[in-house]
Simulated scan of single mutants.
Amino acid sequence: MAVDIILPKLGFSMTEGQLAEWLVPDGGQAVEGEPLFSLESDKSVNEVEAPASGTLRIIKEPGETYEVGTVLGTIE
C-alpha cells in the first residue's frame, strides 16, 4: 500500500514551502523516521522524515515552491 508524502505545515502561518532537495533518490529505499527531504520555509530549512519504509517514487522536483498539503511523492 502506497503512502503519500505531503508537504507539511511547519509553522502556524506557513502556506507554502520550497522543496530544497530529496535526500533519498527516486527508486531508493526510504526508512521510516530517517530524513527524506529538505524543506525551506520563510524562516528556516528543515529535514522532513519519511512517514514509512519502502521504495520512494518522486513526483515533484526540488527547487520549486509548493503549497502545504501537496503530494511530493509516494513510498511503496
Rank of each mutant, 00 (worst) to 15 (best):
A30C: 10
A20G: 08
G11L: 09
K43Y: 14
L56G: 11
I58N: 02
M14S: 03
M1R: 08
L7F: 05
T74I: 09
G54S: 06
E67F: 07
V45Y: 03
E21Y: 06
E40L: 02
V71L: 10
E76V: 10
L39M: 07
V48P: 10
I6D: 05
P35E: 02
I5Q: 02
E40Y: 02
L23Y: 12
D4R: 08
E61G: 11
P51V: 00
F37T: 00
E47K: 14
G33H: 11
G69D: 06
I59E: 13
Q29R: 15
T70F: 03
D42A: 13
V24I: 15
E16N: 06
G54H: 03
G27K: 07
V71A: 14
A50F: 03
D4W: 04
E49M: 10
G17T: 03
G17A: 06
V71Q: 09
T15A: 11
Q29S: 13
E61L: 12
N46D: 06
E34H: 11
L72H: 00
G27T: 12
M14H: 01
G33F: 13
V71W: 06
K43C: 09
L36A: 08
Q18G: 10
P51G: 03
L36I: 08
G63S: 13
L23N: 11
A2D: 09
P35V: 04
S44Y: 06
G33E: 12
E40F: 02
S44M: 12
S38I: 07
L19A: 01
P8I: 10
E47R: 14
V3A: 08
T70K: 04
S44G: 10
D4K: 14
E67K: 12
G11P: 10
Q18L: 15
S41I: 11
P35M: 03
V68G: 05
E34F: 07
K9E: 11
G54N: 05
I75C: 10
A52R: 00
E34A: 11
G63I: 07
G69P: 09
L10D: 13
S41L: 07
L36F: 05
I59H: 12
L23W: 07
E49R: 14
L56Y: 07
E61R: 13
L36Y: 04
T70E: 04
I59L: 13
P25M: 07
T70C: 07
G11F: 09
D4S: 12
N46R: 04
D42K: 07
R57D: 10
L39E: 01
E40K: 01
W22A: 10
S53A: 14
L19P: 01
P25G: 07
G63V: 06
A30M: 09
L36S: 05
T55C: 05
E67C: 08
M14P: 02
L72W: 00
G17R: 02
I58H: 02
E40N: 02
L39N: 05
G17L: 03
Q29P: 06
L72N: 01
K43E: 13
V68E: 03
V45E: 04
E76L: 14
S53M: 06
P35G: 05
E64M: 04
